[in-house]
Design a protein around this nucleic acid. Sequence first.
DNA 1: ATCAAAACCTAGTGGGTACTAGGTTTTTAC
DNA 2: GTAAAAACCTAGTACCCACTAGGTTTTGAT
Lengths: 212, 212
Amino acid sequence: MTDTTSAAVAEASRRGRPRGSYAKTEARRHKILTAAFEVFSTSGYRAGSLKDVADKVGLTQAGLLHHFPNKEALLEAVLTLRDEESVSRTGALTAQGIEMLRGVVELARYNTTIPGLVALYCVLSAEATDPDHPAHEYFQRRYNWVRSTMTEAFDELARQGQLRSGIAPSTAARQLVALMDGLQVQWLLDNDSVDMPAEVVAFLEAITTEKF
Amino acid sequence: MTDTTSAAVAEASRRGRPRGSYAKTEARRHKILTAAFEVFSTSGYRAGSLKDVADKVGLTQAGLLHHFPNKEALLEAVLTLRDEESVSRTGALTAQGIEMLRGVVELARYNTTIPGLVALYCVLSAEATDPDHPAHEYFQRRYNWVRSTMTEAFDELARQGQLRSGIAPSTAARQLVALMDGLQVQWLLDNDSVDMPAEVVAFLEAITTEKF
DNA sequence: ATCAAAACCTAGTGGGTACTAGGTTTTTAC
DNA sequence: GTAAAAACCTAGTACCCACTAGGTTTTGAT
């Protein structure tokens, strides 16, 4: 365990040891992540450049690389931050059963307000289907986790007889995830062509006996 | 109209006019398109390079650019060829109503045998959601066409009372397209996680009264 | 006020990019 | 066989890439 109390930092400083980052540093790193997010969203990871990111923040490439050792680390940081934010924001995954599925509809609605984030995951998940992509395992883990979480929700519905017969909970989960991903592509290509939350509601009402 | 009869070519040759391409040229262009397809599939258009394509064919970059004036033209040629091939192969879209939907299931099954093509459209459609992408309009047109074709099929089902009540044909079409796209991402990330044709069948049987 | 570390820069490295100019080899009609 | 166009190459353009070495400026605890 690293001791990060101020007393310990002061002690370390006296001996010429590493000091913590400055007051503005956290804000700057956040700005960098926002910019990186925008760049990776529109160009993908491979075609998006560190210079594009640095320019958006008002830094040089080298300045940027002072905060993140390399491009891959930057991508990881973006993905981690976005996961934390969306989990803390929606708490979409703490709910269970039907309440969680209502949360999914709400998520679909919320997604229409953040096309950038939708584009990021859309472009990145497609790019990361290549086993050599640095985010390949991240997306494998992510999909496994989302699918299993959704399967649990449909399991509960099935136990209460609210899932239409002939539909396995795991199938419902896979399809719901697939549907949302696919709708996003169509929506990004042409916003007016798809009403995402309405489509999700229609799907859920088709496979369950509930109203959403 | 360009006159391309052999007599006309001969006449043109006598005058030092352009000649047609050589016997092997068509095969070579086809080899180039195959290679380009592979490169764009795994890396996308933006990150995929002409050198990668040229190397696969055993040409130099310059040699490749003798056949296609630039990278964008190469992409267009790949997309056009693939559309022609898949239309002529499956004839998936000549059928109507339920027969066409059965063709969609068959397409999902066939897709599992060509992960490269699936990856191409998956990566490219995501990348092309950016309005500045050269294939942006291509994908807009493509989705509009696919959606309207599918809507017609569901319309016919609805007329025959085979579409579950409460589901609009256009909704069914959008969802079927979205589902297939989304399933492909999950399948590319982990082949064993999804049985694509089975999922499509499950979806169709959930929204219709038919067996698939 | 001092001074060391953090933050950031300039100026590179070696490599890749799409694309071009101009020449050489290969094909093919005559 | 000849000649001209097609096919293809070498060698270059100008630019972008991720990343680094080493120096300068800024910060902040003492």
